[in-house]
Design a protein around this nucleic acid. Structure first.
Lengths: 219, 219
DNA sequence: GTCTATACACTGATAGAC
DNA sequence: GTCTATCAGTGTATAGAC
């Protein structure tokens, strides 16, 4: 009976705490992503979370620590998934089609993360070092090496033209990501700032990009 | 005599003023580009310009106005030049080679502008509207239309595969610009954070990108 | 855990002397 | 034009009651 009470109370408190903590993190995401580290205000985050500033500091002692959490979460949504998409054992062209489809979907799902992550990193590249130190090393080198070997094999088999793996990856990601982080400029300059037209443009990007890449690398 | 005195004094003052004004603008560029609008501090700009805050406000009344000048200058370095590179009358493939060479050179000359401009625009797209209103309309539509017509002509002539002009431009710029704005991530994840290796990588990008595009679009 | 009130530092901007 | 001094506002963070 008392055990039940304790357990229920405990789990209630845990649940409650988790909710507030989560509400804060969600609000912090919204604000940091748009305003950036230096532009974000603890007051705005508190308002959006429906609490007050003091409670913010109760859960995450400083703005820095809260930012760190938000950044790390954003970073982890993208980088490991990105690398994961390259590590299947499909043939190169299928792998690229799979990657472009999934990566662009991911970008459309989180359109503010790339600009946020890249601009914060350009302002303070040290953030990345801290993340790498804190996390188990990614297996990016294995993935890259495998991809490189796979390309070479398919080149010898007469399927692909010779192509450098790193350059290819940078090209692919660049073509996928630029319409998102460059949206204000591209929409303004090439699409008369017409939002609907730009959304139409985004809809057909997957097919265009895939065809563009394959045309370039297939033997 | 007195006229001489006035003229000399006047020209001395003009020269002097110009120097201070320019020193401020240079310092403001340095600080705003790295820290962004909200992260920049008037004190830091003053220090870097070798003057004090009061003098900053004497020349540019507010932080907003100073930021506006810096942003507009940065924006104008890129966008008109970018469009200009597409408006020669060379054949498409030559035009693209010319564009990639010059655009990447421009990027390497001003590596902080793209990230600065894009992140500020993502945070406040309204900036772009103000710039467009203040400036004589760019001829982006003519340039795009001409480029599109030119492609269609060369498609009919059997030189190129059919390709959409806007998608092609976004691809080209994306492949050129991503190694710059994404440098911290790419260098960290794909180049073991080795700066020298990354610089080597950048050196060969022009050739790789040109070949990649041409392989994709030539008939 | 959550609140109100407040400490304390910093920032943009101005006043006024030279 | 350039400086020193200073103000008013805002921002992060903490103290203390409940």
């Amino acid at each position: 009976m008392w055990l039940n009470y304790i357990v229920n109370t405990y789990s209630f408190m845990k649940e409650h705490e988790k909710n507030t903590e989560q509400k804060i993190l969600d609000a912090a995401e919204d604000v940091f992503m748009i305003k950036g580290m230096s532009g974000a205000r603890m007051q705005e985050i508190a308002d959006k979370a429906g609490i007050n500033k003091a409670l913010l500091h109760y859960y995450y002692r400083t703005k820095d620590k809260l930012f760190e959490k938000v950044f790390e979460k954003a970073f982890k949504i993208f980088i490991p998934k990105t690398l994961g998409m390259m590590s299947s054992d499909k043939p190169v062209i299928e792998k690229i089609e799979f990657f472009v489809n999934n990566y662009i979907s991911l970008l459309y799902k989180h359109p503010f993360i790339p600009s946020f992550v890249l601009s914060e990193l350009n302002r303070n590249p040290q953030i990345l070092v801290n993340i790498f130190e804190k996390n188990i090393q990614f297996t990016e080198n294995d993935i890259l090496e495998n991809f490189d070997k796979q390309i070479k094999t398919e080149v010898e088999a007469g399927i692909l033209k010779p192509v450098d793996a790193r350059n290819l990856m940078v090209n692919i990601i660049g073509m996928c990501i630029f319409p998102i982080i460059g949206r204000p400029v591209i929409q303004g300059v090439l699409f008369e700032n017409n939002k609907a037209k730009y959304n139409e443009f985004l809809k057909q990007r997957k097919e265009f990009v895939k065809e563009f890449i394959i045309n370039s690398i297939k033997a």
